[in-house]
Amino acid sequence: MNKLLLAALISSAIAVPAFAADYTIMAPAAPGGGWDQTARSMQEALQAEGISGNVQVTNVPGAGGTIGLAQFVNQFNANPNALIVGGYVMVGAVLTNASPVSLANVTPIARLTGESDVIVVPAASELKTVDDLIAKLKADPGSVSWAGGSAGGVDHIAAGLFAKTVGVDPTTVNYIAFSGGGEALAAVLGGQVTVGISGLGEFDAQIKSGDLRALATTGSARLEGSEIPTLGEAGVDLVVENWRMVAAAPGITDEQKTAIGADIEKLVSSATWKQTLATKGWQDMYLGGTDFDAQLAADTEATSAILKEIGLVQ
C-alpha cells in the first residue's frame, strides 16, 4: 500500500497541469492523429496571431475520444480556459461505447474542418457507376463487402446510410472494419473486398494513378476541379461529412462562451489558419454559434438512428 501511495504522490507531482496558459486544448487522441494535428494547428495559429498568449496541448488517447471527453468534463467544469477538440467519430463512439458523458455535457463552440468520404472500387471491378453498386446491393446485400475504418465510425455510418437511402436494410450491410486507411486500401487493391469507403485522403493517390475507380464522394459539393461526382449528383440523396470541432468546458457562462466563440472566429479567419488548411488539405467547414448547435443536434440524432438500425447500439 505504501508503494502505491508513493507512486501516486510521484505521479501526481508529474501530472500537475499548467494553468498559466490562456488556453489548454485537450486532444482526446494519441499524438499524430487528426484530432492531435487539429489541436496543435490551433495552438500554433492562436499564438502566432496573438489571439492567445500561451496555449498548451494535452493528449488523452483512447476509445474514440470518449476517455478524453470524460476526463475533460470531470476536470474542467466551468473553466473558461479549457478547450477540447472532437469530431463526428466521437458522436458515434459515445453511443457504441455507452459512454457516461456525451457531447451534450460540454459546450460546443464551432465546427472547424471536414472531409467527405469517397466510395471506390478496384480498376478491374465490374461496378462502373453508383447505379451498378445499387443494383448489386439490392440483388444480394451480403455480396457487397465494404472495407473502411473502425466499426461505428464515419465510414461504417456512411455505408449504412447509403444502404438505407437506396432502400436496402442497413443490418444486411457486409461491413469489414480495418484499423487504418492503409489496410483498407490494401484490401480493396487486392480485390479482397467489393468496395472501399473512407476519407478521400486515404485513396487519393490510387484514384489519381488509376488503380482505383472513384464512384462518388459523400460530400455536399464536388471538390474544386475534381471529376468525382457527389452522391447527390449520382441520384442518392445523402451527405455524410467527417467533421472536426472544438468545444469548451461545461458550466461556463454565456459571456464566456461568446468570448471563446469570438476567439475561434478570429482564428479561422486568420492567415496562419488558412495556410494550415492549405498545407494539410483540410476543407474549411467553419460553422459557429447556434447554427452549429442545431447542426450538431441533427447529426447526433441521425447517427444514433443509423447505429441502432445497423445494430451496433441497442
Binding site: G62, A63, T66, I67, T96, N97, A151, A177, F178
Partner: peptide, 16 residues
C-alpha cells in the same frame, strides 16, 4: 474493431 463493442472491460474505461 468489427463491431465497436467493448469486451471484458468490467466498466473500467482504461481497459477500453
Amino acid at each position: 474493431l468489427q463491431t465497436g463493442q467493448a469486451r471484458l472491460v468490467f466498466g473500467i474505461p482504461d481497459l477500453l
